[in-house]
Design a protein around this nucleic acid. Sequence first.
DNA 1: ATGTCAATACAATATTGA
Length: 259
Amino acid sequence: MKIVTYNLNGIRARLPRLVEYLAEQKPDVLCLQEIKCADDAFPISDIRAAGYDGVWHGQKGFNGVAILTPEKPPTLRRVGLPGDPDDSHSRYIEAEVDGVVIGSIYLPNGNPVGTEKFAYKLAWFERLREHGVELLAEERPTVLAGDWNVIPTDSPDDVFSVRAMAHDALMQPESRAAFRRILHGGWTDAIRARYPDGAHYTFWDYTAGCWQRDAGFRIDHLLLSPQAADRLLDAGVDKDYRGREKASDHAPTWVRLED
DNA sequence: ATGTCAATACAATATTGA
């Protein structure tokens, strides 16, 4: 079972990449982020024409998440993260696929540091941790997949330049502590479980020739519950999609679980 | 600081968010 997370950076602008990915990789579950479209603008007919269906939580202009599956849509469990009824951002959707619980996450970027945006990021992180505790209590195979907007460590395996990114919200001690606190609650970072070392970047900025000089970092993560981690066969990044025409700035990142 | 991009408001460019 191949479960993928892919921050599209605009589903309409990226429709050729999306359809191509479905045809070439045939994921069993595809979690999307930054679809950047309202619910009624979601291109479901194109997705159905590609043999997939889905559930989505859109928003005009920015944010927006979805979960796609072959043939029929997954069983929707939740739209939006609990804990703040005033949160208007579309950043979380949760569904069940073949007995596996899947959350598609678009965690707030949080830049610039020291503003309300950074405070919102940390608050959202904590709400996600609390929801994760509820999910773990179910003791089921569960995957929280998405753009977590956090670079876990200073290692060159996680970030091309500590100096260049030092003041970014993705690298702040508070962001990392929030991520670690979730991991320490019992979740497994799939890429690092499969590959303790080695650069597995998932994002390369459009500016400054970052892709051409491999100036990337690792922010798209799949966190596994113990019941999912027991079934982990492989994990990786489909890096070549970043180098294609009209590419997203993220690459699809995936796990394969034993059926 | 950006060698960039997408979406929006608006009507050719500026703003926002990344």
